[in-house]
Amino acid sequence: MSAMLSLRLCGLKLGGKTILQPLQLDVRPACWTAVVGPNGAGKSTLLSALAGLLPFDGELSLQGRGWATWHSRERARVLAWLGQNETSADDLSAEDVVMLGRLPHQAWLAPASAQDHAEVERAMRQTQSWDWRARALSSLSGGERQRVLLARALAVRASVLLMDEPLAHLDPPHQSDWVQIARELAGAGVAVVSVLHELNIALQADVLVVMDGGHIVHQGAPHEPSTHAALQQVFQNRLLILPLQGRWLALNA
């Protein structure tokens, strides 16, 4: 299956410091890819490079087309982004925040269409945030806020969804809901990429990208022994990875 998003990176520096070493990554459609690794491994920087948010030496293509050949609005309909600790739009209602995800589909200064409103409601019900749609984003708890921001990304109805620590502030039941959403999106053909610290959830993905020191150490399925070995390596052999009821569980050694 051809890649939905392809990155060929010769290196990336921030503030004069090399953050990412030469690497390449192909993101497939109908696949949930989880990026994991210790603190400072370069996970978030990699995701930002995939989203075209950082300059780097190399090539980035979306649906087989070079990044620069895409008009920004056209690209925003295909690729959606959920970053860490987003603070903009605090004074907007939750529903208006989610409506921002529909902007790439709207003509300049045009009012929201019936389809836009339907997609916003659908996304907010999917993240169980519809009940507080009239409340200001700033009035919500951290978990409620995160669910609204996830709904905004879902409302785009993009073919590629990049999420940096999407489980931040979510309690275990809503983390399970997020896993179900990720699986449903991948099942519908979407390329889902998430940076996760929660290894037990990452081990439920289709593909694990294991990073350390700005390198991609390994890419593979969560059930593969080589993936377990890579996880052990980057976490300094302080993990036990055990099977449990058809899944894999990571425990502190």
Rank of each mutant, 00 (worst) to 15 (best):
M1L: 09
M1S: 14
S2A: 13
M4F: 04
L7E: 09
R8L: 04
R8Y: 04
K13P: 00
K17S: 12
K17I: 13
I19A: 06
L20D: 12
L23Q: 09
Q24H: 15
L25W: 00
R28F: 09
C31L: 08
C31R: 14
W32C: 04
T33K: 03
T33A: 06
A34M: 08
V36A: 04
G37L: 11
K43C: 02
S44V: 08
L46H: 08
L47H: 04
S48Q: 14
S48A: 15
A49G: 06
A49K: 06
L50Y: 07
P55E: 05
F56Y: 13
D57G: 00
S61A: 15
R65M: 04
R65L: 09
G66M: 05
A68D: 11
E74L: 03
E74T: 12
R75E: 05
A76I: 06
R77H: 02
R77W: 10
A80M: 07
A80V: 05
G83R: 12
Q84S: 05
N85Y: 09
E86N: 11
T87C: 01
S88C: 01
A94C: 15
L109H: 13
A110H: 13
S113E: 11
A114L: 13
Q115K: 12
D116R: 14
V120S: 05
E121D: 13
M124H: 04
R125T: 07
Q126R: 15
Q126S: 11
T127D: 00
Q128L: 03
S129F: 00
R133A: 10
R133E: 01
R135N: 06
A136Q: 15
L137Y: 09
G142R: 09
E144Q: 15
E144V: 01
E144R: 13
R147N: 01
L149C: 02
L150C: 01
A151H: 00
R157P: 02
A158W: 07
V160G: 01
L162K: 10
L162M: 05
D164L: 08
E165C: 06
A168F: 03
H169S: 11
L170G: 10
D171E: 14
P173H: 07
P173I: 05
Q175W: 09
Q175K: 13
D177N: 07
W178S: 00
W178A: 03
W178E: 00
I181A: 07
I181P: 08
I181Q: 01
A182R: 12
A186P: 04
G187Q: 12
G189Y: 12
V190K: 04
V192K: 06
S194G: 03
V195C: 02
V195F: 11
L196K: 00
L196Q: 10
E198W: 04
L199H: 10
N200T: 10
A202H: 08
A202Q: 06
D212C: 10
G214E: 06
I216P: 13
H218P: 12
G220Q: 10
P222Y: 11
T227R: 09
A229E: 14
A230P: 03
L231P: 09
Q232L: 15
Q233E: 14
V234Y: 03
Q236P: 01
N237V: 01
R238M: 12
R238E: 14
L239Q: 10
L239M: 11
I241D: 04
L242W: 06
W248A: 00
L251P: 02
N252G: 04
N252F: 10
